[in-house]
Simulated assay, not measured.
Amino acid sequence: MTTKEVADRLVSLCREGKYEEAYNELYAENCISQEMPGMPNALAEGKEQIIKDFHQWQNNIQEMHGGEVGDPMVAGNHFAIPMSYDITFKEGGRQAMEEICMYQVQNGQITKASYHYEVPEMG
């Protein structure tokens, strides 16, 4: 897949709430994922760890109130997607956040993901 095809497929799956399917289908086995410094699981190495961290995040959600996945912007083998969420966490309460998700693609798979947002006040 081209970078644009990967980006479009990721957006489609995320809009349907199929995040784990996106990881399994689009991420390379040796992918790395970076959250903002100071956040739990700030660096995950390998698809297995990324999925494990996703499950941990997902299990901390009490209620999902809404969110949006924007259209991708592609440049070479990179793309960025704006995303927003309004979530009540079991620990941390309700939080609305916006982020820019940046991805690197090689050989038709995501090899690096990084997430850029204001770090919320926890608790």
Rank of each mutant, 00 (worst) to 15 (best):
F54A: 01
P40F: 00
M36C: 13
E91F: 05
Q58Y: 14
G17I: 00
F79M: 08
C14E: 12
E21H: 02
A80Q: 02
Q58I: 05
M36E: 14
Y19V: 14
A96I: 09
A28F: 10
E48F: 02
G123P: 05
C14M: 13
M1C: 07
G17N: 04
G70M: 06
Y27A: 00
A44Y: 02
F54C: 01
M1V: 14
N41V: 09
L26A: 03
I81G: 00
I81E: 01
H78D: 15
D71M: 08
A28E: 10
M122W: 05
E20G: 01
W57F: 12
Q106A: 13
G67M: 03
G17K: 03
E118P: 06
E20Q: 04
G108H: 08
P37G: 09
P37N: 10
G108R: 04
E29P: 09
A75K: 14
H78S: 12
A7F: 06
E118D: 14
M36V: 15
G46A: 04
C14A: 09
C31S: 11
E20I: 12
K52S: 14
C14W: 15
W57R: 07
S33V: 10
S114K: 03
Q109K: 12
P37I: 03
V74S: 08
N41E: 14
G92I: 01
R94C: 03
G108C: 04
D86H: 03
Q95S: 06
A113H: 15
N41T: 13
V119D: 08
A7P: 01
N107Q: 13
A42F: 10
A22P: 11
Q106L: 07
V74C: 10
G93R: 08
D71S: 08
K90H: 01
M122E: 10
F79S: 06
D53I: 08
E68F: 00
K52C: 05
Y103T: 00
Y115R: 07
Y19W: 13
N60P: 04
F79W: 00
T88A: 08
G66C: 03
R94A: 09
K52V: 12
R9Y: 03
M1F: 08
E63R: 05
N107M: 02
H116Q: 07
R15L: 05
M36D: 08
G92M: 03
G76R: 12
N60R: 06
I51K: 04
N41C: 12
H78K: 12
L10R: 02
N107D: 10
A28C: 05
I87P: 03
V11G: 05
T2R: 02
H116D: 07
E20L: 06
Y115F: 15
E91R: 08
A22T: 09
Y23T: 00
A96E: 11
E5Q: 15
V105L: 07
K52P: 00
T111H: 04
G66R: 00
A42E: 10
I100T: 11
